[in-house]
Structures are given as structure tokens and as C-alpha cells.
Simulated scan of single mutants.
Amino acid sequence: MGRVSGRSCIVTGAARGIGRAIGEALLDEGADVCFADINGDQVRAVAEANRDRAAASGAKVTWAAVDVTRRDQVRAMIDKAVAEFGKLDVKFNNAGVNRPMNFLDVTEENWNFIMDVNGLGCLIGMQEAARQMIAQGTGGKIVNTASIASRQGFDNVAPYCASKWAVVSLTQSGARDLAKHDITVTGFAPGVVATEMWEQVDQDLMEIGAAERPGQAMDEFSAGILKGRTATPADITGTTTFLASRDSDYMTGQIVMIDGGMVLV
């Protein structure tokens, strides 16, 4: 029996990268999983590609198109998962965006775009998941995706750093408020992970003159990793499955660093 057998989970930002890997690892451990993303066509394809994986562990899989900044869409996503799985046990607020911009060039539009998705989207996701869990009366787990950028500021991604600091604060606030409902709130903070998002960040940094060649940004960020290499999504999922499992029932309000030793706190 898997570590999360019988648990119903939603993962946002699950059409690719870390989110997809989180969902697939949960399926392997027996959880029912709703893959959710703003890109409906792509996330539907991910869910369909995982039908056999789900069947192999006796789990169910579904998908939802969602803009995490829209409360009505988040509520509809949760309703769909509950209709198909019967309940909601674990909600991963993983959807996130970045749009590098040199510090003095950061605009209100850049700030609002990043803070809306990464900050407000996390808050709405936490609130609506908690309301469902409270109505069920069975407790639950909320897991938020932070970042090494939640622990220190970087000059070319200031709004992203601020948004991930917000995720840490929301995790702590939610943990304090929801403990009385037997809902735990935790998070994890990846470092440099070889995903499509990092490839886009690398390109964006070249466009704003912060990097001169492809791969430079990743190389420079990775130079301080004690483990000596960048992470893959598979390096993250052992921890995320733990946070979704009963093994972490006594943990709340904490952010787990999964960065290979980039930032020591």
C-alpha cells in the first residue's frame, strides 16, 4: 500500500515541471489526483497520459483548467475533484510565474502579474481548500510551493522574491488559523530545478541584459549548490509525497528547503 493510498489530492501548475512530477509521484503512491493548470489542453493531455499509471496503483486521475487568481474557477476545480473522488484531503498550491526584470525597471504591471498568481493565487487556493476540508470535518493538508527566493532577494527577480516571501507568510498564517480544524499547512522551497520554467527564466535574463549566453544564469545560480548539481523534479517529489502523507501529520507552519544546500537557514 502506498504512502498516500486513498487520499484525494489537487495539484495546481501541474501541466509540466514540478507540478506534473508531484502529481505523478502521488499517483504512484496510490492517491487520487486532479492535475490542474491554466493551460487546459496541456493539463488534460497530462491527465490522459497518466491513466495507466493511476490504474496500476488503483487510483483515479482527473484534470481541471483553472486560473488560480479567479475564486470561482478555484471553487469549480475543487468541486470537480470532490465530485469525482468524494472528498479533498490534500491541496498543493504549486502554480507560479516569474518574469525577470532588472530592479530599477520593475513596473506595476510586472509586480501585479507575479504577485497575483504567486501570492493571491496561493491565498485563494488555501482558503477554498480549507473551506472544503472544514465542511467535510475530516481535516486535511495544504502544501504551498515557495522557493529559495523566499529566503533571500535576487536583483533581477524582485517581485518573484517578494511573492515567495508572501507564500511563507501565508503558510505560517494559515497554519495558525487552521490548526483548530485539524488542517496542516506546510510548504517546500526548491532551488534550481531543471524545468521549462528555468529555461524560460534563462532566456528572459538574456533579453534584459542580465546574462550573455544560454545557460549562464543556471550555471551561476547553481555554482553554490553543495550537492554539486541542479535538481530534477524527481529530487523534489520524495519530500512532497511526505508532506501529503500521514508521516507529516505533526508538521505544520514549516517550509522545507529542497535546494541541494544553496541556502542554509
Rank of each mutant, 00 (worst) to 15 (best):
G2M: 00
R3A: 00
V4F: 02
G6P: 00
R7T: 01
I10W: 04
T12E: 13
A14K: 01
A15Q: 09
R20E: 15
G30L: 01
A36K: 02
D41Y: 05
R51Y: 03
R51P: 02
A55Q: 08
A55H: 11
A59N: 06
W63V: 05
V68P: 02
T69N: 11
T69Q: 15
Q73A: 14
R75E: 15
A81D: 05
V82C: 08
G86T: 10
K91T: 03
N93I: 04
V97M: 09
R99G: 09
P100D: 06
F103G: 03
E108I: 09
E108V: 13
W111R: 10
N112H: 08
F113M: 14
M115G: 04
C122G: 01
L123W: 14
Q127T: 12
Q136A: 15
G137T: 08
G140N: 12
K141L: 08
S147C: 10
N156R: 03
Y160I: 06
A179F: 06
H181N: 15
T184I: 14
T184R: 15
F188L: 11
Q200S: 13
D204T: 05
M206T: 05
A211Y: 02
R213P: 01
A217D: 03
A223R: 15
R229E: 03
T232G: 04
T232P: 01
P233M: 07
P233T: 06
T237R: 01
T241G: 06
F242C: 07
F242E: 01
R246Q: 14
G253S: 12
M257P: 03
D259S: 08
D259W: 10
G261Q: 11
G261I: 09
